Simulated scan of single mutants.
Amino acid sequence: MPNVLTPDIIRVTTPQTNIRCGVGESPIWIAHEAAWYWVDITAKTIWRLDARSGAVSSWSTAEMIGCMAPQASGGFIAGMESGVFHLNVVAGGIVDAQHLAAPATSAMGMRFNDGRCDRQGRFWSGTMLIDMSVPRAAGHLYRYTKEQGISAPFISNLFVQNGLAWSPDGRTMYLSDSHPNSQLIWAFDYDTNSGTPHNQRLFVDMKTMDGRPDGAAIDIEGCYWICANDAGLVLRFTPEGKLDRQIAVPMKKPTMCCFGGDKLDTLMVASIAAGQAADDEWAGATILLNPGVQGYAETAFAG
């Protein structure tokens, strides 16, 4: 049985109890700012929490943001509705958005979802149908680089692409599909020189477990942490795919986790309020907790 940690033995806080994200996603730790960022997809909002002062800021965007990653030259790279964008947040709640690319296979009613950079700074993200009730595997996984632009699909037939992460050495890529018709996590061998995944294999079948696989993070022991949406859990799997730890969180629908803080030993977990009871104070909350292990900082986009 996995080691079970419950909220009474971990530090559980909500940055702002009045912030309830419709679909909270894509937490990021920006070390030089000592700040956390995350997004509310349906509200088209970027949130920022100053870890030292506790001050919170927000910015509105013209499109839904599925994911963001820091960019080495400043700002963020993001997967949105109409493609990949460079975003700068500026004073007055304004976001300067520059459209970089759109997939050749893009279609109406779709958007980018989960995404992050590999260890070499290439940006990866996948598409999904906005209406999850449509049981059609129309999503694809793409790679974007400044030099090559957006790729052709590397992986297709995805319902709700999620769970992207890379092992500490970058040689294993993880990917999940959150849809009830899938609920699978895969591992791939990853060529760090070419940025190419191959040898796709089943890592975990979560149909046999509580919750659906959502967003993920990697710790310094090479273990894969993934939010179990609908189950109120964050799960840790060893590189061999063995469940060895789980943390109960106060939100039923956690979405994505990210390591951060000065020692990279804090886990931020975002969640969904949409469809939850109006009096559920934790639905849509974004929390910080101590998982008992350090993680890795997110790699910045190399562009």
Rank of each mutant, 00 (worst) to 15 (best):
R143D: 01
D131Q: 06
S133G: 13
I130L: 10
F123E: 08
R119G: 03
S125A: 13
D131I: 01
A102T: 14
G126W: 00
R119A: 07
D118I: 04
H140D: 08
S125F: 02
Q120W: 02
V134W: 06
A102K: 07
Y142K: 04
A107M: 12
A104H: 05
G126K: 00
Q120P: 00
M128Q: 07
S125T: 07
F123M: 05
L129T: 04
H140E: 05
F112V: 01
S133T: 13
R136M: 08
R143C: 03
P135H: 12
R119N: 12
S133C: 08
H140N: 11
G121W: 11
T127F: 07
G121D: 06
A137Y: 05
M128L: 14
A102W: 04
N113Q: 13
P135A: 15
R116V: 04
M128R: 01
G109V: 05
M110N: 15
A102N: 03
G126R: 00
G115E: 07
A102I: 07
N113A: 09
M108Y: 10
D131N: 12
I130R: 14
D114T: 11
T127M: 05
V134S: 03
A138H: 06
R116W: 13
D114Y: 05
D131H: 03
R122G: 05
C117P: 15
R116S: 14
N113T: 15
Q120H: 06
G115N: 05
M108K: 08
G115I: 15
R143Q: 08
G109W: 01
P103T: 13
S133E: 15
G109F: 02
D118G: 00
D118A: 02
H140G: 00
D118V: 01
T105W: 08
G139S: 15
A104R: 09
G121H: 07
R136I: 15
G121Q: 13
Y142F: 14
G109R: 02
R111L: 09
L129G: 07
F112A: 09
A102D: 12
M110Q: 15
R116I: 08
M110H: 12
F112G: 02
A107D: 07
S133K: 13
S133Y: 11
A102G: 05
R143Y: 01
C117E: 15
G109D: 03
L129E: 05
P135C: 06
Q120N: 04
N113M: 09
T105Q: 09
R116P: 10
P103F: 11
M108C: 12
M132E: 11
R111M: 10
A137G: 00
H140W: 01
M108I: 11
M110E: 15
S125M: 04
F123S: 08
R122A: 15
G115H: 14
T105P: 04
R116F: 09
G121P: 06
R111E: 00
M132G: 09
C117T: 14
Y142T: 13
G126M: 09
V134R: 12
F112L: 02
L129V: 10
Q120S: 11
M132I: 06
D118W: 08
D118M: 00
T105S: 14
G126Q: 09
S125C: 11
D114R: 04
M108V: 12
C117A: 12
R122H: 14
A137F: 06
G115M: 13
V134G: 06
D131T: 01
N113H: 10
R116G: 11
D114E: 14
R111I: 01
A102F: 00
S106F: 10
W124H: 01
C117D: 15
A138C: 06
